[in-house]
Design a protein around this nucleic acid. Sequence first.
DNA 1: GGTCCCCATGTGACCGGTCACAATCCTGGC
DNA 2: GCCAGGATTGTGACCGGTCACATGGGGACC
Lengths: 345, 345
Amino acid sequence: MNVTGHTRRPASIRDVATAAGVSYQTVSRVINDHPSVKPTTRERVLAAIDELGFRRSATALALASGRSRAVTVLTANTTHYGYASILQGIEEAARAESYAVGIGVLESADEAAVAAEVRRAADAGGGLIVIAYDPAGVKALGAVPAELPVVGVVETPASTPDPGRPWVWTDDREAAYQATRHLLSLGHETVHYVAIPSSTRRTSARTSGWRQALREAGAPEPRPVQGSWGPAEGHAAGRRLARDPAVSAILCGNDDLALGVLRALHEAGRSVPGEVSVAGFDDAPHSAYLTPSLTTVRLDFTGLGRAAFALLHGVLEEAARIAPHPVSVPELVVRESSGRPPATG
Amino acid sequence: MNVTGHTRRPASIRDVATAAGVSYQTVSRVINDHPSVKPTTRERVLAAIDELGFRRSATALALASGRSRAVTVLTANTTHYGYASILQGIEEAARAESYAVGIGVLESADEAAVAAEVRRAADAGGGLIVIAYDPAGVKALGAVPAELPVVGVVETPASTPDPGRPWVWTDDREAAYQATRHLLSLGHETVHYVAIPSSTRRTSARTSGWRQALREAGAPEPRPVQGSWGPAEGHAAGRRLARDPAVSAILCGNDDLALGVLRALHEAGRSVPGEVSVAGFDDAPHSAYLTPSLTTVRLDFTGLGRAAFALLHGVLEEAARIAPHPVSVPELVVRESSGRPPATG
DNA sequence: GGTCCCCATGTGACCGGTCACAATCCTGGC
DNA sequence: GCCAGGATTGTGACCGGTCACATGGGGACC
């Protein structure tokens, strides 16, 4: 290690070369594990590298060779549990491969703003991962120039515009199907649905899984309530549903919506699960501690993030084309918020 | 705009120069707003830039000039509300200045692992923002080489090792003081405290604000309960406190802990706020929708993130030394979870 | 009309790596 | 003892910008 201090310009390969008495190219070969370097020479170079505290400049590497070992994640939000977990998963996998992780937030779904963000991300070099769970993300995914390596984290594969690109997703349809079946199996006549916004104009995977379960059971299909992402919207939707005495089971597009619904039911004096059952999606960290604790479907967002990176890594370096990391199956977690419907009389 | 297609190497300043019939240096002057370029020439160059769809390579810029317009955020976590909001604030401010934002997660507080992450962040070039709310973050902040521009988001200014560096923080002491006073003013004899881990071995700002309020009121000082960050730890702490009938008010280091405590009290059959009052910190999005809704202190994490970036920006470009963005004062939000103590006797 | 100076522009080197190719060393085979 | 050929190593150009300095072309001024 260099102990000589002096806030100096960091050592370059030419400095190392001089110190080791070889040419800069030989140093380059050593740091790239090129086979044809004499062991004694390699030894000398490595000593010099250590001595000078040399670190290869990622910038120069990117400029000269084109490869940049970087990912930029484009997302509409960093604070929602699902998004944040995906980001965490991507970072984890990227770190293992010593990739740099950049982040760009799509603050608005405005065409021009999205395009600007995509350009910024492209300027960073390297690959792109777009979280396309919402209109902004879907637009961004669509706005990525064809020559850029990109992976989309999508709601469902059928709903996205360009079929030629690699995507990862969780089986939302199956998740919704499971949750709905669970509620029906408890004896509820039907299940109402408070939806998260669909990322596209088409019906979301969660909605169609819910619908399928209802059809199979021959249950009536109420109109889904359009919610949004947060508890406030869930609260608003819940107030409307609470007024209808026929409502005995509510499936919510995510745990935050479910929280708002629970609160609204409480305010309306309807007990959960005594009179109404509620279920959510995601299994956010707080869901197990609510009162009543929330029945939900656990989705492996971190694993999804890791899978997205693995896929991108495969696109970036053909050498790394490992079998795609399987994303785990959604898992129903039954807690206190779901139970048998009140006896009809 | 270039419409000629052909997945080609992007245009460089020399391509633009040729197209405009000038030298590459002139193009460089144009994109840098250098004053001494004849208007007609500038016009011609701008036309060529537009024609070829030229974008200046951030990589080449960084290599040649040293300036990199990038921040890397080092954090122990991306999913906790506070951390995620800070990140969001940083990104927002960075985007406005067209800085790239990178992220590195400190997965372990292990000395070597932290050092490796700091090196990785340094390699990315540009400035550093370290969220030092926990041991891993504090170690990382300490491990940043002196010559690197860095801003720390710290728990409290007195608790960090190196006094020569720029920091931002919220007034946690004041926040804890306010919350404790609120509970005391309702008539509680004293207030118990479930602490988040201190970032250092010293007493945290929240703890000392709590203690100060107790002393001023002449209230007894119970030992703080060491919690952690999540609802699970809050739950464990809550179970212990629930057994003690003398406990009538509990202040929690954050809203997640408070959630766990609420749950534990519910399980123990102690009503909130009838028998026990609970308050938290942060005003996480779900806190208003809990049952009972949570009394808490709102902290402006997004603003804190913006302030951190503004400070770093000032360090990076002396030209930008604007007056430091003030971080807003903590604000007490009184909700259902706090109330008068049960009548004694 | 000549000199000075500023405006506008061009040239060469450099940032820290890589790539393609040339040059040298060494060794075995005949 | 000589030559082919692989193993090692070195040289020059380049990636796409910037920087420092040189150069040419007008006024302004005397």
